[in-house]
Structures are given as structure tokens and as C-alpha cells.
């Protein structure tokens, strides 16, 4: 009943995630590997490559620039500290770093919520990413457009659920309550929405 659908299973036999650290020494993977060997300059180069991504995501989620800076610092130090545990067979360096950033930012928001400090409304209204001029000025304009275009291929409920959860830092139960939808429905829409997003991003790559 959670319509996992044919597309959910269609691709399982196509492992595509292993990113081979190629000859280019400036890929995030190569820099992360050198970081794992304790090379400060590789980490500095990695910082220059990903700090905008880490800080921007933290800022989107926690909202307060001072706190975003704190969380971004925690994230980047964690990247240094745990670079030894990065396994490129399990995903790209960028995804690995982004995952750490998102989790840290969400943890910050949730502990603030638990302490009753947070205005839920602020997160709810800002869940939909606005057109971000700073982001547009940054690198990755093409990717930027792809993500926006692919988000548009989702149904309204899928898109709302995914963006509220990701940019708003909400749990799927909170998303269900914000959208006044059934919890199992939201859980399923998140999953099939992400599958659609994955397929769209891959096709347009």
C-alpha cells in the first residue's frame, strides 16, 4: 500500500555510486583522501571547495548566521577528524560532507526546539527555498538549475514533504502535522519523491 512502485526497484541492480578518485588531485574525493593522511594543505583546499556548501546549508536550516557559523565549524572539523572513515564505495565525498552538515544542523535545530527556544513558524514558512542570489553567484549554476527543475517534477505533496523535511529540518511526523496529512502517507511520499528526484538528477547529469 505504500506504492513502492516499479521504479523503486528498477535500478537496484545498477551500482553506480562508486566514485573512482581519478588522476585529478583536486576532486573532493582525492582531497578527502589526502586529508585522511593528515595533510593540512589538502584539507585547506577541501575547505575552499565545500565551505560554501556547508555554511549555506547550515544557514538555511538554523537561520541565525552566528549559529550557522558555529555549526559549520563543527561540521568542517568533523570532516577533518573523520576523513579516515570516508569510504568512497559508499558514496561521493560531497554527499558525505553534506550529510554531516545536514545532520549537525538538524540536531542543532531539534535541540533548540526541545528547549523551547525555536519559533516553529519561521521554519515552516521558509521551507521552500527562495531564489538565492548568493547561491546563484556561487559555483554550480548548472547543478542549481537541475535541482530546481527536478524538484518541479515532483507532485505538490512530494515536493512539500521533501523540502519541509530537508530545508526545514522537520521530522516526517512534524511534516505530516504541518501539512495536515496522514503520517504513513507523508513517509511514503518522501520516499517516492526522493526516488523521482534521484532519477531526474541522474538523467540530467
Amino acid at each position: 500500500m505504500f506504492d513502492q512502485g516499479a521504479e523503486a526497484h528498477r535500478r537496484q541492480d545498477q551500482p553506480r555510486l562508486s566514485v573512482v578518485a581519478g588522476a585529478d588531485p583536486a576532486t573532493p574525493e582525492a582531497l578527502l583522501h589526502r586529508t585522511a593522511l593528515g595533510e593540512d594543505d589538502a584539507f585547506a583546499a577541501l575547505y575552499d571547495l565545500v565551505s560554501g556548501r556547508v555554511y549555506g546549508l547550515c544557514l538555511r536550516i538554523v537561520r541565525d548566521p552566528a549559529q550557522a557559523e558555529e555549526v559549520a565549524q563543527e561540521v568542517l572539523v568533523e570532516v577533518w577528524r573523520t576523513a579516515t572513515r570516508f569510504d568512497e564505495r559508499r558514496g561521493s565525498a560531497t554527499a558525505w560532507i553534506t550529510t554531516i552538515a545536514h545532520r549537525r544542523a538538524v540536531d542543532r535545530v531539534r535541540s533548540a526546539q526541545a528547549a523551547g527556544e525555536r519559533e516553529r513558524r519561521a521554519a515552516a514558512e521558509s521551507a521552500e527555498p527562495e531564489y538565492d542570489q548568493v547561491a546563484e553567484a556561487a559555483a554550480g549554476r548548472l547543478e542549481h538549475r537541475q535541482v530546481r527543475r527536478c524538484l518541479k517534477t515532483l507532485t505538490e505533496l512530494q515536493r512539500q514533504a521533501v523540502t519541509l523535511a530537508y530545508y526545514g529540518g522537520h521530522t516526517y511526523r512534524q511534516v505530516a502535522s504541518l501539512l495536515d496529512a496522514a503520517v504513513p502517507t507523508v513517509k511514503s511520499r518522501i520516499r517516492d519523491g526522493l526516488i523521482k528526484l534521484r532519477d531526474c538528477l541522474e538523467v540530467s547529469r
Binding site: 593540512d40 556548501r53 544557514l59 558514496g91 550529510t99 556561487a138 528526484l197 534521484r198
Partner: peptide, 26 residues
């Protein structure tokens, strides 16, 4: 695979951090 796709959602939130963050992190 979903994690890779999800990480792309951060493509649209990139923002320049304050320059002091670099020194502080390093």
C-alpha cells in the same frame, strides 16, 4: 542513492561563509 540525490538539494543553498571561519576552522 537517495543520500546522493538528497545531497544535491544543498546545491541551491550555497552561501559564502564569513572569511574568519576559514582561519578558525584551520
Amino acid at each position: 542513492e537517495l543520500r546522493e540525490a538528497v545531497a544535491r538539494l544543498a546545491d541551491v543553498t550555497i552561501a559564502e561563509p564569513p572569511p574568519r571561519l576559514r582561519d578558525s576552522v584551520l
